[in-house]
C-alpha cells in the first residue's frame, strides 16, 4: 500500500461524494456516483482486495448506475437541493 496513492484516491472519492450530493441535476449526480464507485474500486485494488474490487466494478458501478438512470428517466430529473 503506497500512502501517497492511497491519499490521492481517498481525496478523489471524497470530492465525488460531495459532488454527487451538490449537483442539482439528478442524472449528473447519478453519473458522479458511478465515478465514485469506480474510484472506490481502484482503492480496493490498491488495498489488495481484488475480489471486492471486481464485484464493486460489476455490481456497484455497473448495475447500480443502470438502475439509478432507469429510475431517474421514469421520474423527474430536476431536484430542488
Amino acid at each position: 500500500m503506497i500512502w501517497q496513492l492511497d491519499l490521492i484516491l481517498l481525496l478523489f472519492v471524497l470530492i465525488c461524494a460531495i459532488g454527487a450530493l451538490t449537483v442539482k441535476d439528478l442524472l449528473g449526480a447519478v453519473i458522479i456516483l458511478g465515478a465514485y464507485s469506480f474510484f472506490m474500486c481502484i482503492l480496493w485494488t490498491e488495498m489488495g482486495a481484488v475480489d471486492v474490487a471486481f464485484t464493486e466494478a460489476a455490481v456497484g458501478a455497473g448495475i447500480g448506475t443502470v438502475l439509478f438512470i432507469a429510475a431517474v428517466s421514469k421520474t423527474k430529473r430536476r431536484s430542488k437541493d
Binding site: 461524494a17 454527487a20 450530493l21 439528478l26 449526480a29 447519478v30 456516483l33 465514485y36 447500480g64 439509478f68 429510475a71 431517474v72 421520474t75 431536484s79 430542488k80 437541493d81
Partner: peptide
C-alpha cells in the same frame, strides 16, 4: 429533501 439524493447518501 429529494428522495434520490437520500438514496445516493445511503449508498455513500
Amino acid at each position: 429533501r429529494n428522495f434520490v439524493k437520500k438514496l445516493i447518501g445511503m449508498n455513500i
